[in-house]
């Protein structure tokens, strides 16, 4: 598997989709920060943009960016016949699948590291710093976010690898990212309403809590109230699920 992984990583470094992802990871937080500055100036709020607001600038859209980048990267392997060629020349399906998902996770980690670095530079040089979070909380958040993005990348890669014969499948990762964004927002609002206590009880409360705790899409929006272990469990859960389901389907499917 390592030889295929090496080849995939080499390809990822020059891939147009990944390059686009790098540009977005750098440019998007900067552009949004500038927009915030303009809004603050126009609204004449009399205060500076805080680090707390800056840190959530990019992460809210990162599942969409990541899903699109990974879909582009993996689907190109299909359309250019690369997956076909790897299998035809002796790479096992397991190796091909594992390598692509590992490369996708690597791409997610790099994009997350880049956007985190850009955000931290903005906070360091252009804001008065964080108001509600300690350095450790911020560190944990960025690390959790990176892990969450890696598991989302693996999930997206799995969807394209497993259903890549059909063009409609290319829309799945983005559609799921969008649905999860809506779902996790609803869940967060119900569990932690702005006004008043949480009114959920019984099974509903358990289901909502499960989604909030263990579905990595819900870790992205804001520093999570749960412990690091819970978040890592969610990340590992999605990763293991993606690998098992993906391998089961990919091993059986006819590749055209």
């Amino acid at each position: 598997m390592l030889r295929v992984l090496y080849s995939d990583l080499r390809r990822a470094m020059i891939d147009r989709n990944v390059k686009t992802g790098v540009v977005i990871s750098i440019a998007y937080p900067i552009i949004l920060f500038i927009v915030y500055l303009i809004i603050y100036r126009i609204a004449d709020l009399g205060m500076a943009v805080s680090g707390d607001e800056v840190i959530s600038l990019y992460v809210g859209v990162s599942p969409f960016v990541l899903s699109a980048i990974i879909t582009g990267f993996v689907s190109q392997e299909y359309t250019d016949g690369i997956i076909r060629n790897k299998i035809a020349t002796g790479s096992t399906r397991k190796a091909v699948f594992s390598s692509i998902t590992a490369t996708s996770a690597g791409i997610a980690a790099v994009l997350s590291a880049i956007s985190s670095a850009v955000i931290m530079l903005i906070v360091l040089f252009f804001t008065p710093g964080f108001q509600n979070y300690t350095s450790r909380e911020i560190g944990d958040y960025l690390l959790t976010m990176t892990f969450a993005e890696m598991s989302i990348a693996i999930f997206s890669a799995m969807l394209v690898m497993a259903f890549g014969n059909y063009k409609i499948a290319l829309a799945h990762p983005l559609a799921i990212a969008f649905l999860m964004k809506v779902l996790t927002s609803i869940v967060a609002d119900k569990l932690r309403p702005d006004n008043g206590p949480c009114l959920l009880t019984g099974t509903r409360l358990q289901v909502y809590s499960f989604i909030d705790k263990y579905i990595p899409y819900s870790y992205i929006d804001r520093p999570s109230p749960y412990g690091f272990f819970t978040l890592v469990t969610g990340v590992l859960g999605l990763t293991v699920f993606s690998m098992i389901v993906g391998l089961l389907i990919f091993n059986k499917k006819d590749i055209v």
């Binding site: 030889r3 295929v4 090496y6 080849s7 080499r10 390809r11 020059i14 891939d15 147009r16 250019d80 016949g81 690369i82 076909r84 060629n85 790897k86 035809a88 020349t89 002796g90 790479s91």
Partner: peptide
Amino acid sequence: IGAVVESPAIYKDMTAKDNLKQQYLT
């Protein structure tokens, strides 16, 4: 074995030489 099934499997954003290097790595 080497195979060209339907269309050639090539990395379009790489040169010919890089394509071959990629296959060597694989």
